[in-house]
Simulated scan of single mutants.
Amino acid sequence: MTPNHAAGPLIRVSDLARTFDVRRRVEGRRRRAREQVHAVHDLSFSVDAGEMVGYIGPNGAGKSTTIKMLTGILVPTGGEVRVAGLDPSRDRVELARRIGVVFGQRSTLWWDLPLRDSFDLLQKMYRVEPAHYRDNLDRFVELLDLGDQLDTPVRQLSLGQRMRGDIIAALLHDPEVLYLDEPTIGLDVVSKGRLREFLRALNAERGTTLLLTTHDLQDIEALCDRVIVIDHGTSVYDGSLAGLHAQGGSSRTLVVDLVDEAAPIDVPGARVRKVEGPRQWLSFPADASAAPVVAAVAAAYDVADLSIQEPDIEDVIRDLYSRGA
Protein backbone atom coordinates (compact mmCIF):
# COMPACT_ATOMS: atom_id res chain seq x y z
CA MET A 1 0.00 0.00 0.00
CA THR A 2 1.37 3.41 -1.00
CA PRO A 3 1.60 5.84 1.93
CA ASN A 4 -0.47 8.97 1.61
CA HIS A 5 1.76 12.03 1.90
CA ALA A 6 -0.60 14.51 0.23
CA ALA A 7 -1.42 16.13 3.54
CA GLY A 8 2.20 17.05 4.24
CA PRO A 9 5.62 17.59 2.71
CA LEU A 10 7.10 14.89 0.49
CA ILE A 11 10.41 15.20 2.37
CA ARG A 12 10.47 16.08 6.07
CA VAL A 13 13.65 16.40 8.12
CA SER A 14 13.40 17.23 11.85
CA ASP A 15 16.40 17.86 14.13
CA LEU A 16 18.43 15.41 12.06
CA ALA A 17 21.88 14.39 13.32
CA ARG A 18 24.66 12.09 12.20
CA THR A 19 27.92 11.60 14.07
CA PHE A 20 30.95 9.51 13.13
CA ASP A 21 33.60 8.04 15.38
CA VAL A 22 37.08 8.72 14.04
CA ARG A 23 40.46 7.85 15.48
CA ARG A 24 43.18 10.48 15.37
CA ARG A 25 46.86 10.10 16.05
CA VAL A 26 47.98 11.88 19.22
CA GLU A 27 51.61 12.86 19.57
CA GLY A 28 53.38 10.91 22.28
CA ARG A 29 50.72 8.19 22.52
CA ARG A 30 50.77 4.74 20.92
CA ARG A 31 47.00 4.46 20.65
CA ARG A 32 44.91 6.75 18.55
CA ALA A 33 42.35 8.85 20.39
CA ARG A 34 38.71 8.35 19.47
CA GLU A 35 36.81 11.48 18.57
CA GLN A 36 33.23 12.17 17.53
CA VAL A 37 32.66 14.21 14.39
CA HIS A 38 29.24 15.86 13.99
CA ALA A 39 28.69 15.71 10.23
CA VAL A 40 25.04 16.81 10.56
CA HIS A 41 23.26 18.24 13.61
CA ASP A 42 20.00 20.06 14.38
CA LEU A 43 19.04 20.01 10.70
CA SER A 44 15.40 20.66 9.84
CA PHE A 45 13.67 21.39 6.53
CA SER A 46 10.81 20.15 4.38
CA VAL A 47 10.28 19.86 0.63
CA ASP A 48 6.86 19.79 -1.03
CA ALA A 49 6.03 17.61 -4.02
CA GLY A 50 7.13 19.23 -7.28
CA GLU A 51 9.68 21.59 -5.75
CA MET A 52 13.17 22.02 -7.23
CA VAL A 53 15.49 22.82 -4.34
CA GLY A 54 19.20 23.60 -4.36
CA TYR A 55 21.09 22.16 -1.39
CA ILE A 56 24.47 23.84 -1.25
CA GLY A 57 27.44 24.43 1.01
CA PRO A 58 31.23 24.09 1.16
CA ASN A 59 33.10 20.80 1.15
CA GLY A 60 32.49 18.94 4.42
CA ALA A 61 29.32 20.89 5.22
CA GLY A 62 27.19 17.72 5.40
CA LYS A 63 25.45 17.74 2.01
CA SER A 64 26.31 14.20 0.90
CA THR A 65 25.73 12.85 4.42
CA THR A 66 22.21 14.31 4.30
CA ILE A 67 21.50 12.72 0.92
CA LYS A 68 22.71 9.35 2.20
CA MET A 69 20.30 9.58 5.16
CA LEU A 70 17.44 10.61 2.85
CA THR A 71 18.06 7.53 0.71
CA GLY A 72 18.58 5.09 3.61
CA ILE A 73 22.29 4.49 2.96
CA LEU A 74 23.12 5.98 6.37
CA VAL A 75 21.10 5.67 9.57
CA PRO A 76 20.66 8.94 11.53
CA THR A 77 22.06 9.10 15.05
CA GLY A 78 19.37 11.57 16.05
CA GLY A 79 16.24 13.30 14.83
CA GLU A 80 13.76 12.08 12.25
CA VAL A 81 13.54 11.87 8.46
CA ARG A 82 10.57 10.88 6.31
CA VAL A 83 10.42 10.61 2.52
CA ALA A 84 7.01 9.95 0.96
CA GLY A 85 5.85 8.92 4.43
CA LEU A 86 8.59 6.29 4.76
CA ASP A 87 11.55 5.94 7.11
CA PRO A 88 14.45 5.63 4.63
CA SER A 89 16.66 3.41 6.80
CA ARG A 90 13.83 1.00 7.73
CA ASP A 91 11.92 0.97 4.43
CA ARG A 92 14.81 0.96 1.98
CA VAL A 93 13.31 -1.51 -0.50
CA GLU A 94 9.94 0.22 -0.73
CA LEU A 95 11.56 3.65 -0.84
CA ALA A 96 13.93 2.59 -3.64
CA ARG A 97 10.91 2.23 -5.93
CA ARG A 98 9.91 5.84 -5.26
CA ILE A 99 13.21 7.70 -5.50
CA GLY A 100 16.00 8.13 -8.03
CA VAL A 101 19.59 8.95 -7.13
CA VAL A 102 22.51 10.19 -9.22
CA PHE A 103 25.95 10.60 -7.66
CA GLY A 104 28.08 12.52 -10.14
CA GLN A 105 31.27 10.62 -9.39
CA ARG A 106 29.71 7.13 -9.14
CA SER A 107 27.85 5.36 -11.91
CA THR A 108 24.94 2.95 -11.44
CA LEU A 109 25.50 1.54 -14.92
CA TRP A 110 27.24 -1.76 -15.70
CA TRP A 111 30.70 -0.82 -16.94
CA ASP A 112 31.23 -3.56 -19.56
CA LEU A 113 27.66 -3.82 -20.84
CA PRO A 114 26.09 -1.79 -23.64
CA LEU A 115 24.03 1.10 -22.31
CA ARG A 116 20.81 -0.55 -23.49
CA ASP A 117 21.55 -3.69 -21.43
CA SER A 118 21.99 -1.63 -18.27
CA PHE A 119 18.58 -0.06 -18.83
CA ASP A 120 17.00 -3.49 -19.51
CA LEU A 121 18.43 -4.86 -16.26
CA LEU A 122 17.02 -1.91 -14.31
CA GLN A 123 13.62 -2.45 -15.90
CA LYS A 124 13.59 -5.98 -14.49
CA MET A 125 14.97 -4.92 -11.09
CA TYR A 126 12.25 -2.28 -10.65
CA ARG A 127 9.61 -4.45 -12.35
CA VAL A 128 8.54 -1.67 -14.69
CA GLU A 129 5.75 -2.74 -17.01
CA PRO A 130 7.44 -3.40 -20.42
CA ALA A 131 5.31 -1.04 -22.51
CA HIS A 132 5.71 1.78 -20.01
CA TYR A 133 9.44 1.10 -19.80
CA ARG A 134 9.76 1.42 -23.59
CA ASP A 135 7.78 4.66 -23.56
CA ASN A 136 10.00 6.10 -20.82
CA LEU A 137 13.21 4.94 -22.46
CA ASP A 138 12.27 6.32 -25.88
CA ARG A 139 11.25 9.67 -24.35
CA PHE A 140 14.34 10.11 -22.19
CA VAL A 141 16.77 8.92 -24.85
CA GLU A 142 15.30 11.43 -27.30
CA LEU A 143 15.42 14.33 -24.84
CA LEU A 144 19.00 13.57 -23.78
CA ASP A 145 20.23 12.70 -27.29
CA LEU A 146 21.57 9.23 -26.48
CA GLY A 147 20.00 7.24 -29.31
CA ASP A 148 23.31 6.63 -31.08
CA GLN A 149 25.00 5.34 -27.88
CA LEU A 150 22.51 2.67 -26.74
CA ASP A 151 24.66 -0.17 -28.08
CA THR A 152 27.95 1.30 -26.85
CA PRO A 153 29.58 -0.27 -23.75
CA VAL A 154 29.39 2.13 -20.81
CA ARG A 155 33.19 2.19 -20.45
CA GLN A 156 33.44 3.69 -23.97
CA LEU A 157 31.03 6.55 -23.30
CA SER A 158 32.25 10.09 -22.69
CA LEU A 159 31.68 11.57 -19.26
CA GLY A 160 28.73 13.61 -20.53
CA GLN A 161 27.14 10.60 -22.20
CA ARG A 162 27.60 8.44 -19.10
CA MET A 163 26.07 11.14 -16.90
CA ARG A 164 23.03 11.38 -19.16
CA GLY A 165 22.81 7.59 -19.03
CA ASP A 166 22.84 7.69 -15.22
CA ILE A 167 20.04 10.26 -15.26
CA ILE A 168 17.91 7.98 -17.46
CA ALA A 169 18.71 4.97 -15.24
CA ALA A 170 17.46 6.91 -12.20
CA LEU A 171 14.17 7.83 -13.88
CA LEU A 172 13.02 4.68 -15.69
CA HIS A 173 10.77 3.66 -12.77
CA ASP A 174 9.06 7.08 -12.45
CA PRO A 175 10.43 8.15 -9.05
CA GLU A 176 8.64 10.86 -7.12
CA VAL A 177 11.92 12.33 -5.92
CA LEU A 178 15.22 12.70 -7.79
CA TYR A 179 18.37 13.35 -5.75
CA LEU A 180 21.24 14.76 -7.78
CA ASP A 181 24.67 14.98 -6.14
CA GLU A 182 27.08 16.97 -8.39
CA PRO A 183 25.35 15.86 -11.63
CA THR A 184 27.28 18.26 -13.92
CA ILE A 185 30.77 17.77 -12.48
CA GLY A 186 33.30 17.60 -15.32
CA LEU A 187 30.74 18.25 -18.07
CA ASP A 188 31.28 20.72 -20.90
CA VAL A 189 29.02 23.72 -21.43
CA VAL A 190 26.87 22.00 -24.09
CA SER A 191 26.30 18.88 -21.94
CA LYS A 192 25.41 21.02 -18.92
CA GLY A 193 22.89 23.01 -20.92
CA ARG A 194 21.25 19.88 -22.33
CA LEU A 195 20.99 18.32 -18.88
CA ARG A 196 19.47 21.46 -17.34
CA GLU A 197 16.86 21.70 -20.11
CA PHE A 198 15.93 18.05 -19.56
CA LEU A 199 15.50 18.49 -15.80
CA ARG A 200 13.30 21.56 -16.28
CA ALA A 201 11.13 19.64 -18.74
CA LEU A 202 10.94 16.64 -16.39
CA ASN A 203 9.73 18.80 -13.53
CA ALA A 204 7.22 20.66 -15.70
CA GLU A 205 5.76 17.58 -17.40
CA ARG A 206 5.86 15.01 -14.58
CA GLY A 207 6.08 17.07 -11.39
CA THR A 208 9.20 15.22 -10.26
CA THR A 209 10.62 16.67 -7.05
CA LEU A 210 14.30 17.59 -7.33
CA LEU A 211 16.91 18.01 -4.60
CA LEU A 212 20.16 19.18 -6.13
CA THR A 213 23.58 19.46 -4.50
CA THR A 214 26.31 21.03 -6.61
CA HIS A 215 29.35 23.28 -6.58
CA ASP A 216 28.32 24.66 -9.97
CA LEU A 217 26.04 27.44 -8.83
CA GLN A 218 24.83 28.10 -12.37
CA ASP A 219 22.94 24.80 -11.98
CA ILE A 220 21.12 26.29 -8.99
CA GLU A 221 20.33 29.55 -10.78
CA ALA A 222 19.07 27.69 -13.87
CA LEU A 223 16.87 25.17 -12.04
CA CYS A 224 15.93 26.15 -8.49
CA ASP A 225 13.65 28.84 -7.08
CA ARG A 226 14.54 27.81 -3.53
CA VAL A 227 17.92 27.19 -1.96
CA ILE A 228 18.98 25.66 1.35
CA VAL A 229 22.49 26.63 2.46
CA ILE A 230 24.16 24.23 4.89
CA ASP A 231 27.35 24.91 6.86
CA HIS A 232 28.96 22.76 9.57
CA GLY A 233 26.08 20.31 9.37
CA THR A 234 23.16 22.66 9.89
CA SER A 235 21.06 25.03 7.80
CA VAL A 236 22.13 28.67 7.72
CA TYR A 237 19.66 29.84 5.07
CA ASP A 238 16.42 28.48 3.58
CA GLY A 239 14.53 30.60 1.10
CA SER A 240 14.47 32.08 -2.37
CA LEU A 241 17.50 32.97 -4.44
CA ALA A 242 16.32 36.59 -4.39
CA GLY A 243 16.20 36.49 -0.60
CA LEU A 244 19.69 35.04 -0.45
CA HIS A 245 20.96 37.87 -2.61
CA ALA A 246 19.16 40.41 -0.43
CA GLN A 247 20.56 38.92 2.77
CA GLY A 248 24.06 39.07 1.33
CA GLY A 249 23.59 42.66 0.17
CA SER A 250 24.43 41.71 -3.42
CA SER A 251 23.76 43.92 -6.42
CA ARG A 252 22.85 43.63 -10.08
CA THR A 253 24.69 45.54 -12.76
CA LEU A 254 23.25 47.55 -15.63
CA VAL A 255 25.82 47.87 -18.42
CA VAL A 256 25.01 50.93 -20.54
CA ASP A 257 26.59 51.75 -23.90
CA LEU A 258 25.95 55.42 -24.65
CA VAL A 259 26.10 56.91 -28.13
CA ASP A 260 28.85 59.27 -26.97
CA GLU A 261 31.09 59.55 -23.92
CA ALA A 262 29.43 61.36 -21.02
CA ALA A 263 29.83 62.21 -17.35
CA PRO A 264 28.84 59.43 -14.94
CA ILE A 265 25.15 58.65 -15.27
CA ASP A 266 23.03 60.06 -12.46
CA VAL A 267 19.65 58.33 -11.96
CA PRO A 268 17.70 57.40 -8.80
CA GLY A 269 18.21 53.92 -7.37
CA ALA A 270 21.61 53.20 -8.96
CA ARG A 271 25.22 54.31 -8.73
CA VAL A 272 27.99 54.26 -11.31
CA ARG A 273 30.66 51.74 -10.48
CA LYS A 274 32.88 52.04 -13.53
CA VAL A 275 33.25 54.15 -16.70
CA GLU A 276 35.20 53.19 -19.84
CA GLY A 277 34.59 55.59 -22.73
CA PRO A 278 30.91 55.47 -23.68
CA ARG A 279 30.33 52.33 -21.60
CA GLN A 280 29.21 52.65 -17.95
CA TRP A 281 28.46 50.07 -15.25
CA LEU A 282 25.65 50.94 -12.81
CA SER A 283 24.93 48.93 -9.65
CA PHE A 284 21.53 48.55 -8.00
CA PRO A 285 20.17 46.17 -5.30
CA ALA A 286 19.68 42.58 -6.47
CA ASP A 287 16.18 42.39 -4.99
CA ALA A 288 15.06 45.59 -6.79
CA SER A 289 13.40 45.76 -10.20
CA ALA A 290 15.61 46.86 -13.08
CA ALA A 291 12.71 48.53 -14.90
CA PRO A 292 12.80 51.96 -13.12
CA VAL A 293 16.57 52.23 -13.56
CA VAL A 294 16.42 51.28 -17.25
CA ALA A 295 13.55 53.71 -17.86
CA ALA A 296 15.37 56.57 -16.13
CA VAL A 297 18.57 55.97 -18.10
CA ALA A 298 16.70 55.71 -21.43
CA ALA A 299 14.74 58.91 -20.73
CA ALA A 300 17.76 61.04 -19.84
CA TYR A 301 20.56 59.69 -22.09
CA ASP A 302 21.18 58.64 -25.68
CA VAL A 303 21.58 54.87 -25.31
CA ALA A 304 23.09 52.63 -28.00
CA ASP A 305 22.71 49.38 -26.05
CA LEU A 306 22.29 48.02 -22.53
CA SER A 307 22.35 44.69 -20.70
CA ILE A 308 21.88 43.39 -17.15
CA GLN A 309 24.45 41.26 -15.34
CA GLU A 310 23.07 39.13 -12.51
CA PRO A 311 24.99 38.89 -9.21
CA ASP A 312 27.35 35.97 -8.63
CA ILE A 313 25.60 33.74 -6.13
CA GLU A 314 28.94 32.25 -5.11
CA ASP A 315 30.04 35.66 -3.81
CA VAL A 316 26.78 35.98 -1.87
CA ILE A 317 27.26 32.61 -0.17
CA ARG A 318 30.91 33.35 0.58
CA ASP A 319 29.79 36.55 2.31
CA LEU A 320 27.16 34.59 4.24
CA TYR A 321 29.84 32.22 5.56
CA SER A 322 32.30 35.00 6.37
CA ARG A 323 29.71 36.74 8.51
CA GLY A 324 29.17 33.52 10.48
CA ALA A 325 25.53 33.16 9.56
Score class of each variant (00 low, 15 high):
17 A>I: 10
110 W>N: 10
48 D>A: 15
69 M>T: 05
82 R>W: 11
53 V>P: 14
85 G>E: 00
33 A>H: 13
91 D>R: 09
57 G>H: 09
71 T>E: 01
22 V>H: 12
61 A>L: 07
47 V>W: 07
44 S>A: 00
55 Y>I: 08
38 H>R: 15
58 P>N: 01
42 D>C: 03
18 R>I: 06
8 G>I: 06
79 G>E: 08
96 A>R: 13
81 V>A: 10
26 V>K: 13
56 I>D: 12
76 P>H: 01
74 L>G: 13
100 G>Y: 00
28 G>A: 09
45 F>H: 05
8 G>C: 01
89 S>F: 13
35 E>W: 00
27 E>Q: 14
15 D>A: 07
20 F>C: 06
51 E>Q: 15
83 V>H: 00
47 V>G: 11
10 L>Y: 10
27 E>H: 14
9 P>A: 15
71 T>Q: 07
10 L>V: 15
90 R>H: 13
78 G>Q: 10
79 G>Q: 00
20 F>T: 03
16 L>K: 05
54 G>W: 01
88 P>W: 04
55 Y>G: 07
79 G>S: 08
104 G>V: 00
17 A>H: 02
62 G>A: 05
100 G>S: 11
99 I>K: 01
23 R>N: 12
89 S>E: 12
102 V>S: 02
77 T>N: 09
18 R>H: 11
109 L>R: 00
12 R>F: 11
44 S>W: 06
93 V>M: 05
33 A>Y: 07
67 I>R: 02
108 T>R: 08
55 Y>F: 15
53 V>Y: 13
109 L>K: 09
22 V>G: 09
6 A>M: 11
47 V>Q: 12
81 V>L: 02
17 A>V: 01
25 R>Q: 12
39 A>F: 05
14 S>Y: 03
59 N>F: 02
21 D>P: 11
40 V>Q: 04
61 A>C: 06
106 R>M: 08
92 R>L: 12
29 R>N: 02
69 M>V: 03
35 E>R: 15
16 L>V: 08
84 A>V: 11
74 L>A: 15
57 G>I: 11
13 V>F: 06
66 T>I: 00
70 L>C: 04
61 A>D: 01
77 T>G: 02
26 V>D: 05
92 R>N: 13
7 A>P: 07
31 R>I: 03
99 I>R: 05
102 V>K: 07
107 S>K: 05
24 R>A: 11
38 H>L: 08
109 L>W: 03
38 H>E: 14
22 V>L: 14
96 A>I: 02
23 R>M: 13
25 R>F: 03
67 I>P: 04
90 R>I: 05
43 L>E: 06
68 K>W: 01
44 S>Y: 04
19 T>P: 06
57 G>N: 13
104 G>T: 07
99 I>F: 03
84 A>Y: 06
28 G>W: 10
19 T>Q: 14
86 L>W: 13
107 S>C: 04
31 R>L: 13
55 Y>H: 04
66 T>P: 03
16 L>N: 11
47 V>Y: 12
107 S>L: 04
69 M>E: 02
21 D>R: 10
93 V>P: 10
102 V>R: 01
110 W>E: 10
